[in-house]
Design a protein around this nucleic acid. Structure first.
Lengths: 118, 118
DNA sequence: AAGATATATAGATGGATATAAATATATTGT
DNA sequence: ACAATATATTTATATCCATCTATATATCTT
């Protein structure tokens, strides 16, 4: 999974409302259309539509148009991929950390004088 | 894991810079102090300090003060707990979805006329 | 105690974004 | 074709937040 999608998913999941919407979609299978979701939350239809777009752009949700309705379905595999990527990135780091427990090589820094960054 | 921490972690991970900082902390074991992190990124010290606070508040990082320094360590268990909670919430939903594949109970909605929500 | 260094906090600012109202687009039914 | 319904988009607004500068606090060194 590329960094771009990784971050888009992270951001999509970070908003509580949007995550709840995703949860509801996942719970409902492919049975929820936009209007049904609007009924579940105290927000305007435009807001739900916006969140659905974010979720879709992140790849977490896919759309099945059916007449004038658009039914949403959670792409659980994509969430799984995200979790795996998260585990991979942080997991590698954490593993490396527990390995490097050996010598006392404290990195104490002084640079401030040099003014390195702009 | 309570919803509060769940969302705080999600938000902490959602900012790319902050996630990178977490990665670096995890990679370094408990060897990184604030100044060392500042050296790794083109942002001001105050910004790093802010991100460290967010990560700490989310429980993803813990502090070991040592003299004038404060060394940061990644709490990988907490990240693991978050991942498990994410899997639990979405996983349950996704599982339920694949189970409920049975009858054609489309929820098509009409409510608009009633003007239910505020 | 005084200066230097490390980190945190306060305040300000620009940019992102969640939300809403209004409008546009598409589809269905008559 | 027209009215009604469903969803998306546009535009505006208010809030949040990443970032900065400046300052405060704490610790170390001499």
């Amino acid at each position: 999974m590329d960094t771009n999608q990784f971050q888009r998913i992270a951001k999509a999941l970070a908003d509580p409302r949007r995550f709840e919407i995703f949860e509801q979609i996942a719970l409902a299978g492919d049975d929820l259309c936009c209007g049904a979701i609007v009924d579940l939350f105290p927000v305007a239809q435009a807001t739900v539509s916006h969140h659905l777009k974010e979720l879709t752009d992140a790849g977490l949700v896919e759309i099945r148009p059916e007449g004038q309705f658009r039914y949403f379905r959670a792409r659980c595999e994509v969430l799984t991929q995200y979790i795996e990527e998260l585990q991979r990135r942080a997991g590698i780091a954490c593993k490396a950390a527990s390995k490097a427990k050996a010598p006392g090589k404290r990195r104490s820094v002084s640079k401030q004088a040099a003014g390195g960054r702009s």
